Every structure is written in C-alpha cells, then in structure tokens.
Computed example of a mutant assay.
Amino acid sequence: MRLSLPNLLRAFLLGLLLVFVMAPQTMEPLLRPLAQANAPVIYEQASLLSLTIQHLMTVIAATVAATMVAVGLAIFVSRPVGAEFLPLSRSLVNIGQTFPPVAVLALAVPVVGFGQKPTLIALFLYGLLPIFENTLTGLTSLPRAVIDAARGIGMTGRQSLWQIELPLALPVILAGIRLSVVIGLATATIGSTVAARTLGEVIIAGLQSNNMAFVVQGGLIVGGLAVLIYDFLSALERRAFQRIRS
C-alpha cells in the first residue's frame, strides 16, 4: 500500500519527534551550531521524554476538566430553563481570556502553591471559552425541524439531547476542543516559571543561559506535538461529520 504525501509527512514528523524525546543525543550534530562554544547542546537536567509526558498529561487533565464544565454549561444555557443565564455564563468563561496566563499563575500560586496546580488552573480557564462557544453554537444552530421531529416521535428533552442534538453538534464541539488543546500545549510552557514540570523548563533554561539549542529543542517538541494532535483531532472532526452526513 502506497502512503500519500500527507501520511508520509505525518510519519516523518512523528518519527522526528520520537527521536527528539527518546534519543536526543542523535540530534546533537544538528543543534551544535546553535550553542556557544563548550556549552551543552542537549538538555540533560531532566529526561525530555519525562517532561513531554508530564506536559501532555497537564494539558489533557486541564482540557478534560474544561470540556466537562464548558459542555455542561453550554447545555444548560441552551435549554429554556437556563437561557437567562447565558450572559453570565459568557462572562464567566471569558475570565480566562481576559487575564494573561502569567497573571493567572501569579494569582493562583499564593492560593495553591507552586507546581502543577497553578498551571492546571490557568489552562483550565484558558480552555473554557472555545469549547463553550462551539458547543453552544452546535446546539443552537441545529435545524428546528430536527428537534420537532424528535419530539414528534415521543422523545423526551433528555433523549433528544443525548441521541440527536449532541451527536449532530459533535463536529463543532470537537473543533472547540481542538482549539483548546492547541492553546493549552503552548500555554503550558509558562508553567515552568512556577515549578511545573513541562517542556517550558527546557525553553526557560535556554533563555537563562543564552543557549538557543535548548530553546529550539523545547520549541520543536511543543510545535511537533501541537501539529500532530491538531491533525489527529481534525481527523476525528471529519469522521464525525461524515457519520452525520451518512
């Protein structure tokens, strides 16, 4: 079976990413020109694989929490009983976008301390808006005839929501989750400023020591993860859309 060019590029990027995190020493000749004389080329203060896993786990945990809250809130305000709370809900989910991530971290540290917790709070707040707005759009833009047909065959409001509305809105919801994940992958790097174990540790070490080799290592891994995860979630969106059309 011949692989298409996009699949070849995905495979190449995945292979390159695996080499960077599992066998970084093999990339030393390529990164050597970016480091000063006698300066280390490969970041060795911590395992790049371990930092990558912890970075991903932090983003996943925050995204799951944001998805549960944002989807639940969007469902509530899209029902007649919760419609009057829509302006308040929009104000709440906009909080994360109003404050810069650094400000959220600064406010969270005195309350929860240093480490992963303030980073999770920042990523959670930043991830709410795209998921909430996409879920709300998906639920409120469904053809009225579809909702009326569900009621016409005797479905309750809950049955219509779970069997008709959410499945039809799923591609739009996934688009919001995709955006939230990509934002989270980039934003999580600043978590290392408050002692969270993320790939930002590599980038910050490079900036502090004026070692561009470290900065490029951390940046390339985060960028590669963002591209691959974005592509994967886009494929899920297309599959969900195709299921609706079929």
Rank of each mutant, 00 (worst) to 15 (best):
L236F: 12
V109H: 02
V182F: 01
R10A: 14
V172Y: 02
L168S: 12
I183G: 09
R10Q: 13
L107M: 10
L207I: 11
R144V: 13
N134Q: 06
V69R: 00
T193Q: 14
N211E: 05
I173S: 01
I173W: 00
F214D: 11
S141D: 06
L170E: 03
L136E: 06
A83M: 13
Q163Y: 11
Q163L: 15
G15E: 04
N134P: 05
A61F: 04
V215M: 12
A39K: 06
M212T: 15
F20I: 12
S160T: 14
F241W: 10
I131V: 14
V181A: 03
L107I: 13
L8D: 05
E237I: 15
V69E: 00
N210C: 03
V202R: 07
G113A: 06
F85D: 00
Q116T: 15
G115Y: 04
L16C: 12
L30A: 13
I204V: 14
L56M: 15
Y43P: 12
S4P: 11
L129C: 00
E28S: 12
R2G: 11
S180K: 03
S160D: 07
A196Y: 07
V102C: 01
R2K: 14
L161W: 07
A61H: 01
E237Q: 14
T26D: 04
I95K: 00
A23Q: 13
